[in-house]
Every structure is written in structure tokens, then in C-alpha cells.
Amino acid sequence: MKRCTPALTSKTSRALAIAGLAALLCAAAPAQAQQVPGGMGEMRNFPDASLRGNLTVLAGSQATLNGNPIRMAPGMRLFSPQNTLVMLHTVQGQTFKVNYLVENSTGMLLSAWILTEGEAAQARKGSDTIQFNFRTESDPLKK
């Protein structure tokens, strides 16, 4: 025996349309929340104390920062341009342009962020310019 489905009333069809629209809106919201920083011109926010430099990860807890040896802190975190953690052993021997933080009490490298081209183009205090908080008589005068 065949059964017929009842005809949809206008109230039922409106309720289904609203439910479908709500489902579409709910499905789109998580996708927007998962956008990756560094893509489509988005810039990450770095701590004000972070500096700019070139980081080369060596074996173990050793690295070079702007050509000078530096030890990495035991909890050192290296972030990719997508802001995900990078395992240090996977990038040994590679050099990256980074923003970095050095731990004040130990002088060890605490955090570093591998920069995108857009982030690297922004001016930041670091290896490109040497700044001192004092002057001597032998310093050339700058106008």
C-alpha cells in the first residue's frame, strides 16, 4: 500500500526555510573562526618587547641569532607564519627572519615567530639598526 505524504502548509514550509537558513549560518561561523593568521594580508600582534633578527636553529638547545650564538630556553616556542608551533628538530640548520623575545633573567631565547613577507616588511627594532641609549663625543652627528 502506498502512503501519501501530507501537503506542506505555508507555516510548515516557512519553518523549514528558517531552519535551513539557520543551519547555513551556523555552518559558516566556525569556518570564519578558523582563518589562519598571515594569510590574506592579516597581521599578527607581537609583544612590544619583541625584536627583529635572523634565527638559525642548531642542534640541541643551541641557535644563532644575527650570527651570534644564543641558548634556547627549555620552554622555547617557535611559531610558524600560520601561528602554529614548530618542532625545533624539524628546522635544524635553517635560517628564518623572526621576531623574538629573550628572557631577561637568563638571556636565553624564549619565543620566536617566523615572519611572513608582509610582516618582515614592517619596521621593527632589532638587527637592522643599532640603537644606544647613550652618546659619546666620537659618535658622528646625525641631522
Rank of each mutant, 00 (worst) to 15 (best):
L78W: 03
A19K: 01
T9M: 02
A63R: 06
L16H: 05
T9R: 13
C26Y: 01
L78V: 10
A59K: 01
A15C: 13
G93T: 15
S61H: 13
R71V: 11
P6G: 05
A28T: 03
A63Q: 13
N68R: 08
E103G: 12
T12I: 09
G60M: 11
Q82K: 01
A22W: 05
L55S: 06
A59Y: 13
Q94P: 10
P69G: 03
Q34L: 12
S50N: 07
V36D: 01
Q94G: 11
A63G: 14
T90N: 07
G39V: 07
L78G: 08
M43W: 06
R52A: 14
P6C: 05
A27D: 11
G75D: 15
R77H: 12
N45S: 03
A23G: 09
L78C: 13
F96S: 04
G67E: 07
F46W: 07
A33M: 00
L85D: 09
V102T: 15
T90Y: 10
A33E: 02
G53S: 07
V98M: 11
Q34R: 08
K97C: 04
S80P: 00
A31C: 13
Q94E: 15
T90C: 06
P69H: 09
T95G: 07
Q32P: 03
A17V: 09
M87F: 13
R14F: 07
A31F: 01
F46A: 00
P47G: 05
L55N: 05
A73L: 14
A7T: 00
Q94N: 15
F79K: 02
V57C: 10
T12S: 06
Q32H: 01
N83A: 12
A73F: 14
R77E: 11
G93F: 11
N66P: 07
A33Q: 00
L101N: 12
R52M: 13
Q92H: 03
F96T: 03
T84W: 06
S80F: 10
Q35T: 06
T64R: 14
S13W: 09
G60N: 08
M43S: 11
L101R: 12
G41S: 08
L8R: 09
T64A: 04
Q62G: 00
P81R: 02
S10M: 07
P37I: 06
N99K: 13
G39N: 01
G93H: 13
N104E: 15
A23D: 04
I70Y: 12
A49H: 12
N104P: 15
V102H: 12
K11I: 10
A73R: 15
E103H: 15
F79W: 11
P47C: 04
S80L: 05
L78M: 02
R77S: 06
V36F: 02
G53P: 03
T56V: 11
N104G: 13
N68T: 00
F79A: 09
D48E: 08
I18E: 01
M87N: 08
R77M: 09
G38M: 09
Y100M: 06
Y100C: 10
Q34E: 05
V102Y: 09
Q92P: 10
A17H: 12
V57K: 04
Q92G: 00
L16P: 03
M76W: 15
L55K: 05
M72I: 15
T90D: 00
T95Y: 00
G38H: 09
N66G: 05
